[in-house]
Amino acid sequence: MQKSKYELKGNCLVIHLGKEIDHHYADRLKEDTDRIISKNYVKNIVFDFEGVDFMDSAGIGMIMGRYKKILHNGGQVLVSGVQKSVDRILRMSGLYQIVERCENIEDGIKQIEYR
């Protein structure tokens, strides 16, 4: 069973994703993430894709869903360390219209702070 790791950096939730994001994985991730969001003040989310080599449309739905959750706080969703295979899926889905890409987590957090 692949695990995700969560890190709270101020009001920013960093989610280190597992290797493969499909419906099976996304369902568990949604539950965990929403529990963290309900217990903490989370304004922004950075999805760390560094270790991800597969994602299908379930991943798109999962990101869109979390985006909707933090949207009313004026927050932002970033994707970090995206590799080629995942980048294609993100492009095809048009998700870059609502989600910004950053090279790494540090850059992402800077990007959020300077906004």
């Binding site: 949604k30 299908d56 798109i60 999962m62």
Partner: peptide, 10 residues
Amino acid sequence: LERSGMGFIF
């Protein structure tokens, strides 16, 4: 269920 509606498009 947060299905994106992208499956068949892919």
